[in-house]
């Protein structure tokens, strides 16, 4: 979420004054933005020491946890919004975390690199794995354990009984609502328990 425009597109999905849990909050940039511009409160969750320090330096509440250990620290429906931005693809137990997100938050918002973006499709068609801005890694050093597409997520959401409230792609800092599975390198979903 280093790109300001991407961040703003996602921030707009968060109702003002929300209590927010940001899973994999990085340096706390979005939380600080939500606090300063939308009167939100809450916590970030991070595993990396450097990010925990960065959040603290920003004055953002951060809880150092390994998301792979689950969200037992957080009660059912205890947050207005649970964010899982650019995080899901790093987790081994993606589906469980998605369910946990829907359990803890009244609204869940996820974003992840869309593997079906046309540029990725071309690269795969040429016989190579894609290396792009959204997925800037080689196949042998990528931290992404899970690669999925915009369309794949729709299927998973249905399977887990999640009601999608809004969904779009992001490309070059702009929301993509036409053919997002083909036209966007990042997928965004806002959902609640069905």
């Amino acid at each position: 979420m280093s790109d300001r425009k991407d961040m703003e597109l996602i921030a707009e999905l968060v109702p003002a004054g929300s209590r927010v849990l940001d899973l994999g909050c990085g340096s706390g940039e979005l939380l600080a933005h939500l606090r300063d511009t939308r009167q939100c409160s809450g916590y970030g969750v991070e595993i990396a020491d450097a990010n925990v320090l960065a959040c603290t330096q920003r004055g953002v509440n951060v809880i150092q946890l390994n998301l792979e250990d689950g969200l037992s620290m957080f009660e059912d429906q205890s947050f207005d919004v649970v964010l899982q931005l650019d995080t899901m693809q790093h987790l081994r137990n993606t589906e469980r975390m998605l369910r946990e997100t829907a359990r803890v938050g009244r609204i869940g918002i996820v974003s992840f690199p869309n593997f079906a973006h046309w540029a990725n499709r071309l690269r795969v068609a040429s016989g190579r794995m894609p290396v792009t801005k959204a997925m800037p890694y080689e196949w042998y050093n990528t931290p992404n354990l899970r690669v999925g597409t915009y369309a794949d997520f729709e299927v998973l959401a249905r399977k887990d009984g999640l009601q999608v409230l809004d969904a779009f792609g992001i490309q070059n800092g702009r929301a993509v609502r036409g053919w997002p599975n083909l036209m966007a390198s990042v997928a965004v979903f806002k959902f609640q328990r069905g």
């Binding site: 020491d49 959040c55 603290t56 951060v62 809880i63 150092q64 957080f74 009660e75």
Partner: peptide, 11 residues
């Protein structure tokens, strides 16, 4: 957290 207090935690 249950009490919605301002808290940070580092391990």
């Amino acid at each position: 957290v249950d009490n919605q207090r301002e808290v940070s935690y580092a391990e």
